[in-house]
Design a protein around this nucleic acid. Structure first.
Lengths: 69, 69
DNA sequence: CATTTTTTACCGTTTAAGCAGTAAATGTAA
DNA sequence: TTACATTTACTGCTTAAACGGTAAAAAATG
């Protein structure tokens, strides 16, 4: 209902960077299991862990609101 | 280094919606403590809890990558 | 084909997020 | 000012996320 598949987006970028799940986990400073969970769209992961992965893969996060600044 | 203050963004939108932290927590189906933590930029909160708050406040999340689709 | 790598999956253990309750501090309104 | 509402802060408990280890599928490589 949100965007289509954040897990898939991350996976594509990981592959593009030539990284395995384990390598990405080490670079992000998190466990391999968590990387696996994130790519499987498990949403109960920590925001900080998701952020760490996104940073390694150079994916920016933007929050769009209907409110003017 | 990311965006400036997601907590503040959420707080502004919460106020705009005329909600207290407790009301927002109930609407999002999470605890009041977590709403407080989120507005204080605690990044170890669950991604699902952050999503729930954003959804109530009608704030969209976008992931921007340098990769073409 | 066989071999290696990677992914998926499950299992204990540890750790801390989540939570309600409470209370104090801050803010707001009468 | 007083009274009420809200936020901030702390406490203890419960629960599950995070984790490494292991192993079995699945993919990739020779």
């Amino acid at each position: 209902m949100n965007d289509l598949d954040l897990g898939a987006l991350i996976k594509v970028h990981r592959k593009e960077a030539g990284l395995t799940q384990l390598e990405l986990a080490n670079l992000a400073g998190i466990g391999k299991t968590t990387v696996f969970d994130i790519e499987k769209n498990k949403e109960t992961v920590r925001w900080s862990n998701l952020l760490a992965v996104l940073e390694v893969l150079n994916i920016k996060v933007e929050f769009k609101s209907p409110l003017p600044k």
